[in-house]
Amino acid sequence: GQEFQFGPCQVEGVVLQELWEAFQAMKDIVQAQDNITSVQLLRKEVLQNVSEAESCYLIHALLEFYLNTVFKNYHHKAVEFRILKSFSTLANNFIVIMSKLQPSQEKEMFSVRESARRRFLLFQRAFKQLDREAAVTKAFGEVDILLTWMENFYQ
């Protein structure tokens, strides 16, 4: 079967097409709420040329942020836009991925960890520069950018 291989971190039991289907069902209504077309949170400096070794740290940090901050603060909109079912599918599959990621904490991985952390901080800083609700809406609307990047590690 297919699985995610984020460097040393392997994740089974998630079908990427099901995540895409869930997001596609919400995409237009969610992205239409984001009027700030001049800011992209998950921009190239965050996601491009990520090494295999970095990828586990970066996806762990991003998914943790999405679950703790983005999804949590977007939930009431999901109810309002009647997209709760697709929202729940995404959130619960992100939980599966998170639960299977075991990024190594060994000392020799410090520089790789730091590199991934700098990328994540670029994203988080851009997020904090926006109004809170606008930032949550934009981040949730950029899940397709995240899924497109995750494709690279789906084999």
Partner: peptide, 17 residues
Amino acid sequence: QGEYESLYMSHIWIPSS
């Protein structure tokens, strides 16, 4: 309720399809 709902927003229940 999936695991996400029970962990992050335990007051939320979703009506079955």
